[in-house]
């Protein structure tokens, strides 16, 4: 089953990284892949729709209690056998969440054997990379492929463009742009052009659909709750695209002028 893929999906906060990650994880699991999702957001909301709406204890929850952590304490099986892990974080405004991610990921790599057998590991990172800890998965050489999720609006594209700069700086190649639609005019066109001009390509266009949020509200992915929906098929397509993708590029960010032109 090919090489193991370890990916991270970047993009502006709220653009849909976590919901895309969990739907892709579910779709890949449906295809028979062994998948793990590692939520790196202190909000711990990456795996919740794979676990029927339940929250799991986070790595940092357990570290805070100073108990010896075993793999089964932090790795939980969700929909389709997806292995779910949440890093967690300190209380908002106290301590250092960035350091927390670094420590938790070190801990996880040390105690998790199942990581080795995975076909796909998805790191779901927060949108705002406010300090070094939030890029730790990439910096530590854990992530081999990065994707950027954006809509056709100016701000998400602006964030995407900045992420391109960041990736180039830390020498991590980009595997593709995913458009998560906000039903902006000419959206597919805009994101397609952007992808092309930074040297990459748009590997999927996910329409904006109420059903994503409805399933999420009930604690499920669309793959589980609405497998026959149109959008479930889109996620399957994205899953296949990711699993078969082996072209990466070093993205070159656009000048802000050009970015504005694109979205005008």
């Amino acid at each position: 089953m090919g090489e193991k893929k370890i990916i991270a999906i970047y993009g502006k906060g709220g653009i849909g990284k976590s919901s895309t990650a969990s739907n892709v994880a579910a779709a890949c699991a449906d295809e028979g892949y062994k998948v793990m999702i590692i939520g790196c957001d202190p909000k711990s909301d990456s795996s919740i729709t794979l676990l029927g709406g339940k929250r799991i204890p986070t790595i940092l929850d357990l570290m805070r209690q100073k108990i010896e952590i075993k793999e089964e304490d932090i790795v939980f099986e969700g929909y389709g056998g997806v292995q779910c892990v949440e890093v967690g974080g300190p209380e908002p405004g106290i301590g250092c969440a960035g350091r927390g991610i670094i420590v938790a990921i070190q801990k996880l790599s040390k105690i998790s054997k199942s990581m080795d057998d995975m076909d796909l590991i998805i790191y779901d990172v927060p949108g705002d990379i406010v300090c070094g800890g939030f890029v730790a998965p990439i910096r530590k050489g854990l992530v081999t492929e990065a994707y950027i999720l954006t809509s056709g609006e100016y701000m998400p594209l602006y964030a995407a463009n900045n992420i391109c700069k960041g990736l180039a700086k830390i020498n991590t190649p980009l595997s593709g742009i995913i458009c998560n639609s906000r039903t902006v005019t000419r959206e597919e066109d805009i994101v397609g052009k952007f992808s092309e001009e930074i040297g990459s390509n748009m590997i999927a266009f996910i329409p904006k659909m109420q059903i994503v949020q409805d399933c999420e509200r009930d604690g499920f992915s669309v793959l589980e709750k609405a497998p026959d929906s149109e959008i479930a098929e889109v996620y399957r397509g994205l899953a296949r695209a990711i699993m078969s993708n082996n072209s990466t590029v070093m993205p070159k960010a656009l000048a802000d002028e050009r970015l504005r032109e694109l979205t005008r």
Binding site: L60, M63, R64, P90, I94, C96, R99, G100, V103
Partner: peptide, 10 residues
């Protein structure tokens, strides 16, 4: 310690 760095030490 490592925990203190993450959770603070108030």
């Amino acid at each position: 310690d490592e925990n203190g760095f993450v959770f603070g030490g108030r």
